[in-house]
């Protein structure tokens, strides 16, 4: 199967203090196996993440979070994205351990999709694809 489509490019990162990286490594592998191009940054500040997303022309920015702070730091990230002019054409997603009631709040902040620890490869990749499709239509 030869695909003429441009590969989806995903920047994956964690906020500066996050200690758990099994999730992000696992998801990086899943997305790569699903044919996406992955830039795995590891721990980084919001401004560094946005800078890399801009430089890489990323379609997607994925954040892995386990220890809280996802609302405050997520908001900072999306504000930064707005300032750098990539908010509207980039898909932001977040996965990890966070209170279920924060999921709608994360959507309000600007994350297209959020994933709990049990999310499967299919769930993540199809969410990414439909979010990208929705962006291109919008």
């Amino acid at each position: 199967m030869v695909s003429q489509e441009k590969k989806i490019k995903v920047v994956l990162a964690q906020f500066p203090l996050e200690t758990h990286n099994r999730g992000i490594i696992t998801v990086a592998g899943m997305l790569r196996d699903a044919g996406m191009e992955v830039v795995l940054m590891g721990n980084a500040r919001a401004e560094q993440i946005i800078k890399v997303a801009v430089q890489e022309f990323a379609d997607v920015v994925g954040i892995s979070s386990y220890c809280g702070g996802e609302l405050a730091l997520g908001d900072e990230l999306l504000t930064m994205a707005e300032r750098e002019g990539i908010r509207d054409h980039t898909v932001f997603i977040l996965g990890g351990i966070f209170p279920p009631k924060d999921a709608p709040k994360l959507k309000e902040i600007g994350f297209s999709a959020t994933f709990p620890p049990s999310a499967t490869r299919e769930e993540i990749t199809s969410s990414i694809k439909s979010a990208i499709a929705a962006r291109s239509l919008g």
Partner: peptide, 23 residues
């Protein structure tokens, strides 16, 4: 210990935002 304490950051450093006493 909470995340900022594990990572050796003070509770008032910007990196600790939203994570003081969460875990």
């Amino acid at each position: 210990l909470d995340l900022s304490t594990v990572q050796m950051f003070d509770s008032d450093e910007p990196e600790a935002l939203g994570q003081v006493a969460t875990v």
